[in-house]
Simulated scan of single mutants.
Amino acid sequence: MPDSRYSDLERPPLSEAALNRALVRPGSVWTGVTVVERTGSTNADLAALARQGTPQGAVLVAEEQLAGRGRLGRVWTAPPRSGLTVSVLLRPRPPVETQGWLPLLFGVAAASAVRRLAEVDVRLKWPNDLLVGERKLAGVLAERVEDAVVIGMGLNVSLRPDELPVETATSLAIQQGACLDRDPLLRAVLREVESHYRDWSEAAGDADRSGLRAAYQASSATIGREVRVELPGGRFLAGRASGIDHGGHLQVVAEGHRYTLSAGDVVHVRPGG
């Protein structure tokens, strides 16, 4: 008997034609949406296209990703059609030193779209995770490819508890989200990304003038928390996350000193933990 968990009725495929009609228009950032049945990594595929000179605005969506990667080389997997696995190709004009904001921009946009459609309180863990409570709903990964930036996201939509890749993850279905339809969710995310990206670009990458830093801090689950940060080289820093600086870096106060971190794996420490 076929496995009904992956039926078209319960987990319908995305329509490439419908997404292009909805998102691609004159003057839009998005120039084309491609939906593939499966691939190794949407980020890797778009990175290859970026090296070939593909213009800004390409969007690649995979119904199943076989070799998805998170931060620090972690594997990100999900059953076919159970989530949104999407990458976008951007060629930003603002200075390179401001482009560390791009994965945070994508996170702000995705969290805003999911909160609005699914009516789930999604928050951001610096630098790239979308959380519900302390459980991971989505991850964002950005990669520089020559003069382009490829940003990918894996968002858990209809996964059941026994399908989660790790116990600390969650999905919109588990959170009883008001919308589990991937089509409007993807449209909303990409429209939010486009809006924030335009504002940020017009402000020459200034996260304050564009409102991006304020939006990120308002959605942050990290700021104000006691954190333990795993730093490159196997070092750790424990302290209180106090804010996000103008470059998108995390500021942590520890033993009376303020540290500014451009990279690190953050663990939120429970009170008394």
Rank of each mutant, 00 (worst) to 15 (best):
196 H>D: 01
29 V>S: 10
153 M>Y: 04
150 V>Y: 05
39 T>H: 02
40 G>E: 11
39 T>S: 06
88 V>W: 01
17 A>N: 04
203 A>K: 10
139 G>W: 05
41 S>P: 02
174 I>E: 00
147 D>G: 07
85 T>L: 15
193 V>Y: 04
205 G>V: 12
42 T>L: 06
27 G>V: 06
249 H>A: 15
162 D>I: 00
80 P>S: 07
121 D>A: 14
112 S>I: 00
206 D>P: 11
114 V>E: 02
81 R>Q: 07
53 G>E: 12
110 A>I: 07
158 S>R: 15
161 P>Y: 07
165 P>V: 05
19 L>R: 09
222 T>N: 12
104 L>C: 02
158 S>C: 12
194 E>Y: 03
252 V>Y: 06
108 V>G: 04
22 A>F: 07
31 T>Q: 15
121 D>F: 02
86 V>N: 05
192 E>T: 03
259 Y>D: 12
261 L>D: 05
116 R>P: 00
205 G>A: 11
97 E>A: 14
146 E>T: 13
176 Q>H: 11
62 A>Y: 12
58 A>S: 14
171 S>C: 06
263 A>S: 15
150 V>Q: 03
70 G>F: 06
183 D>T: 13
65 Q>V: 01
156 N>A: 11
134 E>D: 15
182 R>M: 05
101 W>Q: 02
35 V>R: 10
258 R>T: 13
67 A>E: 15
129 D>R: 01
27 G>I: 06
260 T>S: 15
95 P>A: 14
58 A>L: 06
204 A>C: 08
12 P>T: 15
242 S>G: 13
229 V>F: 11
3 D>T: 10
198 R>V: 15
109 A>Y: 07
151 I>M: 05
191 R>N: 03
58 A>W: 04
125 K>I: 04
196 H>G: 00
246 H>G: 02
214 A>N: 13
149 V>W: 03
136 K>P: 08
235 R>A: 15
35 V>T: 11
137 L>R: 03
133 G>K: 12
66 L>C: 07
211 G>W: 04
146 E>K: 09
